[in-house]
């Protein structure tokens, strides 16, 4: 279980959120909602351990989550604004790097997002929606209990959103947690809203 206690975050000179407490249990989904600049992306980066909170604590099963950042990194998948793809590598090569890091098979992960036919194409020729799907294919590689998704469905067609919905449902059925920041409707039945 992930627990945030009185988190506060500073970006530039401005406090984007303060005294934020919540907890996420196994199988839970939380939608982060709020206006632009409300700190949704910052919160996801804090939860990933990429950004240090100004104040507050982050607990994983009751223990300090960020005490061992490498261990915390291994239990999460983070999909940020950037797709983290290298244009010169093919779709399969881009994903194969993450498969070497985390384990898992490239071909089924590509198929899960409907990218099987594009495996041999360099990422530079993919459309922005296809690039987003390739970034999301990282979620299908190997299981990790905590998914942090920053605007995961930007540029996706409805068939791809459905595929992501299936991934999310499998993940949650296996006890996984999802925190997603989005302005678009996400296929997350029963998700709680956390307003920033």
């Amino acid at each position: 279980m992930l627990r945030a206690e009185a988190l506060a975050c500073l970006r530039g000179e401005r406090v984007v959120f303060a005294d934020l407490s919540f907890s996420v249990a196994a199988g839970d989904a939380v939608l982060l909602v709020g206006a632009n600049g409300a700190g949704k992306s910052s919160l996801l980066r804090v939860l990933a351990g990429l950004l240090s909170p100004l104040e507050g604590r982050l607990l994983w099963d009751g223990a300090e989550a960020l005490a061992d950042r490498a261990a915390h990194a291994r239990r999460l998948r983070y999909i940020g604004h950037g797709d983290a793809l290298k244009p010169a590598l093919t779709a399969a090569e881009n994903l194969a790097f993450y498969a070497r890091l985390w384990g898992g098979q490239v071909a089924p992960a590509l198929a899960a997002l409907g990218l099987a036919e594009l495996a041999g194409l360099p990422a530079r020729v993919l459309s922005s929606g296809q690039k987003r799907r390739l970034a999301l294919a990282r979620l299908a590689l190997a299981p990790a209990p905590l998914w942090l998704l920053d605007e995961p469905t930007v540029g996706l067609d409805s068939a791809s959103v459905e595929r992501l919905g299936a991934l999310l449902a499998t993940h949650r059925a296996a006890g996984g947690m999802v925190l997603a920041a989005t302005h678009l409707p996400l296929p997350l039945p029963g998700a709680r809203e956390l307003r920033l």
Binding site: L50, A70, A73, L76, H81, G82, L101
Partner: peptide, 15 residues
């Protein structure tokens, strides 16, 4: 850093 790969590298568990 621009395309988001650096975040993934920092989360690779490598340190």
């Amino acid at each position: 850093a621009e395309d988001g790969t650096l975040d993934q590298l920092l989360l690779s568990g490598l340190g």
